[in-house]
Design a protein around this nucleic acid. Structure first.
Lengths: 144, 144
DNA sequence: AATCCACGTTGTACTATACAACTACTTCAA
DNA sequence: TTGAAGTAGTTGTATAGTACAACGTGGATT
């Protein structure tokens, strides 16, 4: 049990340290994209467009927060709104050409950074680490 | 290489999801402690007191940020300042009795939450996960 | 039609943060 | 020994991100 406690303690410490660093580091993922706006834009990109309400629900953000984030992305020219012809309350949000481009760039440098950090890991270790993270996140989702 | 890419992709996704959730969830770790104030208080506790400057350096926060966080903790009665007799510029910060108590409570519920999330993990898996996290964080530290 | 609901915006407030200017104290060197 | 330079911490100011509440507009239900 002592060993078990030690491992859990380490996991807790390291995840906490990671979260702290993530806050500091990832505030600007790209000169013009914060972690939040990056995430929202990425979601629009791989959902092929969606509504502000969907973003709010998916990321547990208030709709006013999403509204302002989207407004900012629109000012930057990265997102455009298309009124849903079937329901005039709804705006379907899409990345613009430029938005998709910026997203692709940000996404590539981000991916590259991960590859660098994990460069000397064996394939087996990468695989296990990925599975552990999935398992941990699923548990956290389940247990709140 | 495809498999390698897949694993890295998953790791990236899951760590990002974790960071996002951490922001939302850990804002209040305890009715009166945010993640930051909890962290600072914990540091004071296991360093047996330290200076505001040390906290700033250790957690990469501006000294003004630390100053205000500490001021808040002092208002709550969780931290006290002791003027360093040898250098009157310096205030050595210590948790108060009450601060130590609140910290212990917060720390215990936090530990318990981790134990619950990891309850059904084998000891071998816990051990490996802990090592992977250490390794990952060390790499991130090294590579920025 | 009247009522209720859904979508999104805006007003307001709060927290966390950084940077810059400042005060108080210390150290060091001429 | 004194004055210049450096260090610890606070305060003024600005910004980002967020939530909640109130609102306007448009749909849906009865």
């Amino acid at each position: 049990m002592a060993h078990r406690d030690d491992s859990v303690e380490t996991i807790q410490q390291e995840l906490t340290a990671f979260a702290r660093r993530a806050r500091a580091t990832a505030a600007r993922i790209h000169p013009e994209l914060s972690l939040v706006s990056y995430t929202l834009l990425a979601h629009l990109d791989d959902q092929q467009g969606c509504r502000a309400t969907d973003l709010a629900a998916h990321y547990l953000l208030d709709k006013s927060t999403v509204s302002r984030q989207i407004a900012a992305l629109e000012r930057l020219g990265f997102v455009e709104r298309r009124l849903d012809p079937a329901d005039h309350r709804v705006q379907v949000l899409h990345p613009t050409e430029e938005g998709a481009q910026v997203l692709a760039n940000a996404s590539n440098s981000r991916r590259q950074a991960f590859h660098e950090r994990l460069a000397d890991w064996s394939e087996a270790d990468l695989d296990r680490f990925a599975l552990y993270l999935l398992r941990y996140n699923a548990a956290q989702e389940r247990l709140g």
